Lab assay of single mutants.
Amino acid sequence: PDFTLHWNGITIHFKGIDEEQFRHLRELLDRGVSLEELEELAKELIK
């Protein structure tokens, strides 16, 4: 499924991740993950 997340004025689209992965990403963003960390995470998910 696809998810869209609005965070700090940025709209991020996640394609092909499951709800569990999306929930994990939201928790990280709510905790204050940096954009660099988010990019690293995205690379991991894409593999």
Results as ranks from 00 to 15, higher is better:
S34Q: 04
A42H: 09
A42Y: 15
F14R: 00
G9W: 03
R23L: 14
H24T: 15
L45M: 15
V33G: 15
I10S: 09
G9I: 01
I17H: 02
E44I: 03
W7P: 00
E20P: 06
W7T: 05
L41P: 00
V33T: 12
L45D: 02
Q21N: 08
I17P: 01
I17T: 02
E44P: 00
E27P: 01
F22N: 01
E37S: 05
L45G: 01
F3W: 10
T4Q: 11
F22H: 04
L28I: 09
L28W: 12
L41Y: 13
D2I: 14
R26H: 10
E27G: 08
D30P: 01
L35G: 02
T4G: 03
E44A: 04
L35V: 13
H24L: 14
I17R: 01
R23E: 13
E20V: 12
T11I: 10
D30Q: 10
K47N: 15
L25S: 00
H6I: 11
H24R: 12
L25M: 05
R23D: 12
E37Y: 07
L28N: 03
E39G: 03
L41M: 06
F22Q: 06
L38Y: 01
A42V: 15
H24E: 11
L41F: 12
K15R: 07
E20L: 10
K47D: 15
E44N: 03
E39Q: 12
H6M: 10
T11P: 08
P1W: 15
S34N: 07
K15Y: 14
S34K: 05
G16Y: 07
L41V: 13
L41T: 05
A42S: 03
V33F: 10
K15N: 13
L38K: 00
P1C: 14
L35F: 09
L5C: 08
L29K: 03
P1M: 15
L28V: 07
I10H: 12
I10N: 09
E19S: 12
R23G: 09
I10A: 11
F3P: 01
E40W: 04
L45H: 02
G9L: 01
E40I: 06
F14I: 09
K43R: 11
G16W: 06
G16A: 04
L29V: 09
E27M: 09
G16K: 03
E27K: 08
W7R: 05
N8F: 07
L35I: 15
L5N: 00
H6P: 01
L25R: 00
L45W: 15
K15Q: 13
E40Q: 06
R31S: 14
E40Y: 06
F14D: 00
L45S: 06
R23T: 11
L38Q: 00
R31Y: 10
Q21T: 13
H13E: 12
I17G: 02
E44H: 02
I46Q: 07
L35E: 02
L41R: 02
